[in-house]
């Protein structure tokens, strides 16, 4: 009973600390949809593969999305003609290169600021490297789904200039139908289709929807963290968590299995802070936002399966090597 009480307190503390950041992340990404014009970003995207991948990795600051929202945006970017390295860089780094994610990581790891810096640096580095590797593939259509590749073939200029950005090709999520995001951006167009009240209503609906979906996952993640921390024998946790290699592998596996939102995953990692190596915490914080089990379905709407395999295999290897380096040299 005592342990149940401890687990319940732990569970609530994770939620109470994380929910403000979840709300801020959802509100910020919703609001920025009104202000950031993706078409301008597309025009500014560099053609140089390395520079492009790096710039793509940094776009998350302008389009703050967690790993639940990055795939549809990356898909839109590809279809609108953004070079592949830019889109891949964005896909992998955007969930971390995001003001709310950076703030929550700083709050969670105030005593270990290197976790924040290395999280940002590793995410940028890995996203840039993989973006560059993908640029080496001459025919990008062999990596993309036929529908996306076909959309790319149509130059942007052929599309109706009056048509809102997100109502153009490739702007629909897997389920089909018009996405809420699409409607929100449509509301910014020159011929206003939506009144201020309607825009407010859309923002409200978007906020409720995101809070519901991401909040549900957060509840599950917090419960899992509380149960592991309370009921797993200390010897087992320390045995796994203090090994340089085993701790990294364990946290990467956990990151793959748990789909906790990147705005709040720092608090989840923090609950393992005492027992696990810094490198393994970094592995969780860098690999988690890149590899998302639930996002594979969405990714299949953009990439062919072999491209997704390469994407994740490269990400996993780079995360493993970099965080192992941290464990051996920085810890």
């Amino acid at each position: 009973m005592e342990q149940l009480n401890n687990a319940f307190t732990l569970f609530l503390s994770l939620l109470v600390e994380a929910i403000p950041f979840l709300l801020l992340g959802v509100l910020l990404s919703g609001l920025l949809l009104f202000f950031v014009d993706e078409r301008k970003l597309v025009k500014l995207a560099p053609k140089n593969p390395i520079l492009g991948a790096f710039v793509g990795s940094c776009i998350g600051f302008l389009l703050p999305v967690c790993e639940c929202g990055n795939v549809p945006v990356a898909r839109r970017l590809i279809v609108q003609g953004v070079p592949l390295p830019v889109a891949v860089g964005f896909l992998l780094a955007a969930p971390v290169i995001n003001p709310i994610v950076i703030w929550s990581t700083w709050i969670a790891f105030r005593d270990q600021p290197e976790i924040l810096w290395l999280r940002v640096i590793f995410s940028l580095l890995i996203a840039t490297i993989i973006g560059w590797i993908f640029s080496r593939q001459g025919d990008v259509k062999s990596l993309l789904q036929p529908a996306v590749a076909l959309s790319m073939a149509k130059p942007l200029s052929e599309e109706d200039p009056e048509k809102p950005t997100l109502l153009r090709s490739g702007n629909f999520m897997l389920g089909g139908g018009e996405s809420l995001e699409a409607k929100m951006v449509a509301s910014l167009e020159r011929k206003p289709q939506f009144s201020l009240a309607e825009r407010g209503n859309m923002l409200l609906d978007n906020t409720m929807q995101e809070l519901r979906e991401l909040g549900g996952i957060l509840v599950l993640g917090s419960a899992l963290a509380a149960l592991i921390q309370t009921f797993t024998p200390r010897e087992l946790i320390l045995g796994l968590g203090q090994g340089s290699v085993s701790s990294v592998l364990a946290m990467m596996l956990l990151a793959g299995l748990i789909s906790i939102c990147s705005t709040v995953d720092a608090f989840f990692a923090l609950s393992f802070g005492g027992a696990f190596t810094s490198g393994s915490l970094l592995a969780f914080l860098v690999f988690g936002p890149m590899f998302d089990l639930k996002g594979i379905g969405l990714l299949l709407s953009v990439f062919k399966p072999k491209a997704i395999f390469y994407l994740f295999a490269l990400a996993a290897q780079l995360v493993f090597l970099l965080t192992l380096f941290v464990n051996f040299n920085i810890n």
Partner: peptide, 27 residues
């Protein structure tokens, strides 16, 4: 009608909202 058409759910049915609501009530 809700303006959120075409949304991809992460958890089946009403699970996500159920979890949030039950947790809030328990709290």
């Amino acid at each position: 009608k809700p303006s959120a058409a075409g949304h991809v759910s992460l958890l089946p049915g009403n699970w996500a909202i159920g979890l949030l609501l039950v947790t809030a009530i328990a709290g």
